[in-house]
Nucleic acid binder design. Structure first.
Lengths: 166, 166
DNA sequence: AGAAAATAGTCAGACATCTTTCTATTTTCG
DNA sequence: CGAAAATAGAAAGATGTCTGACTATTTTCT
């Protein structure tokens, strides 16, 4: 014999309406949507971000990658290592500055990025499919506002300009 | 000698404007804001969510907790174990159903929740401080719309109603 | 009643994050 | 120039999250 224990949703409103809670759930969901669309390629959102950046700036180092994707150093190292294991990027110590490990896509990595174009586009579409067009625009604008307003306060700010030895 | 390598922000717009990317950044930031405000209590957003739910439904089991907070089973087990280690909750096997582990706050857990009221309120405020009041309302509404629209499609849907043996 | 299905937990493994600490190298500056 | 500061990376450890496999218990259903 079973019985429904009536747990009133309202009882949890103080939790469910918290911006942090909603953002965590949104993150869970958008990750799943991305992974769902790209399942056959065995790639994660973070790895995709890294590939995207490395393609645009071949020869970038781990710190540069971190600053363009918003990773901290450890995450950049981890994601790079995964990508290298999969054969999508190559890394080597820089000759001019032997502290640096410079990264570049392999031919396979380039192919992978091409193959990902469609599924990642679909993933975006899927996220926004909960909204009307107007809402989608507003959602992205506000999300961007929040992220931009706090960019510099994080321990991993996004810094498009990299300094380099001449 | 240093020189700024001009990396055009626009080059990365295709990445930075992705909803998934923005949500990931938002998650990073809101976590940091929560942790910043509650630093002295050594508590995480997930642990706070669990405490909140266990207070409302003492005697809940790990699966019930998972379904109210949006964790999967493993995460529920992990977070519970952290909270127990910290002495904030107590767990024991249920007598009526020996598969279940039932959870309840300790006196310390209750005190902790009280002490967290203020800092967590501030954390919320901080997240929304990037917005005007109107924007904040819209942001939460849209976030909620996204999360609700996709709740059932996730592998960890939030299910306020728990079934229980009579 | 007894077999099959569902349910609660655990464990091991993966990935993304962040922290702190340590090493190596390069840059800065007195 | 040479010491101090800054920078890049690595290593170890913590938390949250998910998966898949496995065990134990309870419920369902023939």
């Amino acid at each position: 014999m079973k019985r429904q224990t009536e747990i009133d949703n309202d009882q949890f409103r103080a939790l469910y309406s918290r911006p942090g809670f909603l953002i965590r759930r949104a993150h869970q969901i958008s990750m799943a949507q991305f992974l769902g669309e790209t399942a056959e390629f065995d790639i994660t959102p973070s790895q995709f971000g890294a590939l995207f950046v490395i393609e645009k700036v071949p020869g970038i180092d781990q710190i540069g990658l971190a600053q363009l994707v918003g990773f901290d150093r450890s995450t950049a190292a981890l994601v790079s290592s995964k990508l290298e294991t999969k054969g999508l990027i190559k890394s080597q110590m820089s000759e001019e500055d032997r502290r640096r490990k410079v990264l570049a896509l392999t031919a396979e990595g380039k192919k992978m990025l091409k193959k990902l174009a469609e599924p990642t586009r679909r993933a975006q579409e899927e996220v926004l499919s909960a909204f009307t067009e107007k809402e989608a625009t507003t959602f992205l604008r506000l999300l961007n506002k929040y992220v931009s307003a706090n960019n510099e306060t994080t321990r991993t700010p996004i810094r498009p300009k990299r300094t380099q030895k001449r």
